[in-house]
Write a protein that binds this DNA or RNA. Structure first.
Length: 417
DNA sequence: TCTGGGGTCCTAGGACCC
DNA sequence: TCTGGGGTCCTAGGACCC
């Protein structure tokens, strides 16, 4: 049996912990740059604020309805997430951190007769120790645990915990569940399914295997098995990432190559730092650029390219060089660029690097990078930069509604007091 | 004027091999 | 008139997730 523990309206709930006046009031949290809504309290959902609502279109509505608005505060959310996972680790080490606010637990060590009670206990402990409300869904497969969690969320009388442990309950749940709410069925798939008269999860599992395989590939087929109660998705405990990305939308569009080159360089450096932090190297750098897809009047252009390196590295200098080379290959003059990014792949551990026959990373880099990291951690991130990064500029995000870093910066809190 | 960022996995098609 | 079969690997693009 699997449990899915999911923190309710996570970012909003984090803001509420330290600001009790927000309780029972409509609250939303915005994305980077305050661009759009990415977390909503139940009150905000009821008020008709959709997920992904662009801030500029909803500003008046926020005011009208007295909705409290926050910029995203990842220092706070990341720290609260860690606290929750430390609690869960006391229950079992057999867990998969699925996202910042969701965690799968494998419950095979737990007594089958009291799974519901365990769910309640977990929920209660998290609430007591962090003030974060969660829902717990328990079922024989991960996809069904998702379903159970969804039910726990929708029916308050269940008090946040639902257990699917019989076929009867499973079928009842699937008859109730709308097809678009099934984990793994997104916009395209539900459109196709509804066009064929499939509106409920129960109808999906009645479709023949061959049909699902053909229309939705093995991914769809696996999902069918999972919903039938046959577990095919295991717990993915390994936490090594396959890609690490640093990407941003710009405040406005830019046509100047030098500007974009500077941004790309900084993204590459950030990727290198993320790699060093987790003691990894990479061997492929992907660079991409986009125009503004929302502006239909402008000519659209988007391209990405992979640049392979001769040896695995996590050096700022190597990655910056490589990313700049990639940009040179894809940049086209005359377009208005709105977004760019750098993604590194071919990730491997720093130690036990593969032996390279002809080329070696310059040894100097390793000690240089260690020094840079040390100075930056002492004097603030990005104090020490490469010359190809802009020295005079700091790229500030739009964050008009940022809350204090309650749990990680005590001096800030004391100042407020 | 103003629409996020960071991930995963799969498939199709092309280049290449013998 | 007639032009093989069976592979691998890589990339771009698309679907999905939170």
């Amino acid at each position: 049996m699997y449990a899915l523990v999911d923190i309710n309206n996570f970012y909003v709930s984090c803001e509420r912990i330290f600001n009790p006046t927000l309780r029972n009031r409509p609250v939303v949290v915005l994305s980077n740059n305050d661009g759009c809504v990415i977390s909503r309290s139940n009150e905000a959902k009821k008020a008709g604020i959709p997920m992904g609502a662009p801030t500029f279109k909803y500003k008046e509505k926020f005011q009208e309805l007295g909705i409290q608005v926050f910029s995203s505060n990842y220092a706070l959310y990341g720290d609260m997430s860690n606290r929750v996972y430390r609690i869960l680790q006391n229950y079992t080490l057999n867990l998969e951190v699925y996202s910042i606010d969701e965690c799968f637990l494998n419950l095979h060590d737990f007594s089958r007769h009291s799974l519901g009670a365990y769910g309640k206990k977990i929920r209660q402990e998290i609430l007591q120790k962090t003030l974060l409300p969660t829902c717990v869904g328990i079922a024989p497969t991960k996809a069904l645990a998702k379903v159970a969690n969804h039910i726990a969320k929708k029916f308050p009388e269940l008090k946040g915990v639902y257990l699917i442990d019989t076929d009867e309950k499973r079928l009842k749940a699937l008859k109730w569940l709308n097809i678009e709410d099934v984990w793994g069925i997104g916009r395209q798939m539900s459109k196709k399914l509804k066009a064929n008269g499939v509106h409920k999860a129960s109808q999906f599992i009645e479709l023949p295997d061959e049909y699902i395989r053909k229309q939705f590939s093995v991914v769809g087929l696996r999902l069918k098995k999972e919903l039938e109660g046959i577990s095919v998705l295991g717990l993915e405990e390994i936490q090594t990432k396959k890609h690490i990305a640093t990407t941003r939308s710009f405040d406005t569009t830019y046509t100047d190559k030098e500007y974009i080159k500077e941004r790309i360089t900084t993204f590459a450096v950030t990727c290198a730092q993320k790699l060093r932090k987790q003691k990894s190297t990479c061997q492929v750098v992907t660079v991409f650029i986009y125009t503004n897809r929302f502006n239909e009047k402008q000519d659209q252009y988007s391209r990405s390219i992979n640049v392979s390196m001769p040896y695995p590295t996590n050096s700022d200098i190597e990655l910056a060089k490589c990313a700049q080379k990639g940009l040179d290959l894809i940049f086209k003059q005359g377009y208005h660029y709105k977004k760019a990014g750098v993604i590194v792949g071919g990730i491997a551990p720093e130690h036990g690097k593969q032996f390279v026959l002809f080329e070696e990373e310059p040894v100097k880099h390793r000690t240089l990078m260690q020094t840079i990291d040390r100075l930056n951690s002492k004097y603030g991130t990005q104090k020490l930069k490469l010359a190809s990064q802009a020295l005079d500029k700091t790229w500030k995000m739009n964050q008009e509604h940022l809350s204090p870093n309650y749990t990680t910066k005590w001096n800030e809190i004391l100042e407020i007091r």
